[in-house]
Simulated assay, not measured.
Amino acid sequence: MARKVGVYTRISRDEEGEALGVARQQQDCERLADLRSWQVVKTYEDNDVSAFKRNVVRDEFELMLTDLRAGLIDGIVAYDLDRLARQPRDLERLIDLFRRWQRDGIWGKLVTQLQAQADAKGLITWDVNVDSTICRAHQHAAGASKKGICKRSRPAVSPSSQPTTASDAPGAG
C-alpha cells in the first residue's frame, strides 16, 4: 500500500500570475514522491499568497489540513519548510496533528508497512551484529560464571599497574 501524500506549493508573490514558481515546486515534489514510491493524491496550491502575514488565510493550506485529518492523505510533501509554514502557529498545528497520529500508533503502522514493502522488494538488508562485550556482561549478570560456563580471564599484573600512591606502597603504615 503506497503512502498517499498531498503536495503543497506556495509562492508569496506572483505579479505576472503565471504560477511558474509553484509549478517548479510541484515538479520537484512529485519527483521526490515518485522516488519514495508515494502516491500523490492531490496538489494544494497557494499561488500569490503570503504565509508571513498573520491575517491571511491560505485556503489550500486549510483544505490540506482538513484532508489530512480526514485521512484522504497521510503525508505532505513540500519544497521547503518555509513554503509550508512561516508562522509558528501553523507549524504547531501540523506538529499537533502528527503527535496525535503518534499517540494513536499510526506512525508505527506506517513504518511497519513501509518496511514490509521495502523488504518484499529486496531493498532492506537485515544484518545482525553481536557485540561479545554485551554477551559477556549478560552472562555474568545471569550468573554464568558461577556455573562454570564462563572462564574468568584477569589480565596479568604488569609493573605499570602497581600502586602509585604512598599509602598503597608496601610498608606504608
Rank of each mutant, 00 (worst) to 15 (best):
A2S: 13
V5W: 07
G6Q: 06
G6S: 10
T9F: 10
R10V: 03
I11M: 09
S12Q: 08
S12P: 04
R13W: 06
D14W: 00
E15D: 14
E16G: 01
G17T: 01
E18Y: 03
A19S: 15
A19Q: 14
V22F: 00
Q25H: 00
Q25I: 14
Q25P: 03
Q27I: 13
D28Y: 08
D28C: 01
D28M: 07
R31K: 14
R31F: 13
L32N: 03
A33Q: 00
D34H: 10
L35M: 11
S37D: 15
W38V: 05
Q39S: 12
V40I: 07
V40R: 15
K42I: 02
D46H: 06
N47M: 04
N47D: 15
D48P: 02
S50R: 14
A51T: 12
R54N: 11
V57I: 11
E60T: 08
F61N: 10
L63G: 05
L63T: 15
M64I: 08
L65H: 13
T66I: 02
D67Q: 07
D67C: 03
D67I: 02
L68H: 12
L68Q: 10
R69G: 06
G71S: 09
G71H: 08
I73E: 01
V77Y: 04
A78Q: 07
Y79A: 13
Y79K: 12
D80K: 15
D80L: 04
L81W: 04
L81M: 14
R83P: 07
L84T: 09
Q87A: 10
R89G: 03
R89N: 03
R89Y: 01
D90F: 06
D90Y: 01
L94Q: 01
I95W: 05
L97P: 04
L97K: 11
L97G: 05
F98K: 07
R99K: 12
R100K: 08
R103L: 11
G105S: 07
G105C: 09
W107A: 05
K109V: 12
L110W: 14
V111A: 14
Q113E: 15
L114R: 14
Q115K: 10
Q115N: 10
Q117G: 04
A118M: 02
D119M: 07
A120R: 13
K121I: 04
L123A: 13
L123N: 11
T125G: 06
W126K: 13
N129Y: 14
N129V: 04
D131H: 03
S132R: 03
S132I: 05
C135S: 04
A137L: 09
A137R: 07
H138E: 08
H140G: 11
H140Q: 08
A142H: 00
A142E: 03
G143Y: 06
G143E: 07
G143Q: 09
A144R: 00
A144S: 00
K146S: 15
K146R: 11
K147S: 13
I149T: 03
I149E: 05
C150F: 07
C150A: 08
C150R: 05
K151D: 05
R152L: 11
R154V: 04
P155T: 10
P155E: 09
S158M: 09
S158G: 11
S158P: 02
P159D: 09
P159W: 12
P163F: 08
T164D: 06
T165E: 02
D168V: 01
D168G: 15
A169W: 15
P170L: 02
A172M: 05
G173H: 06
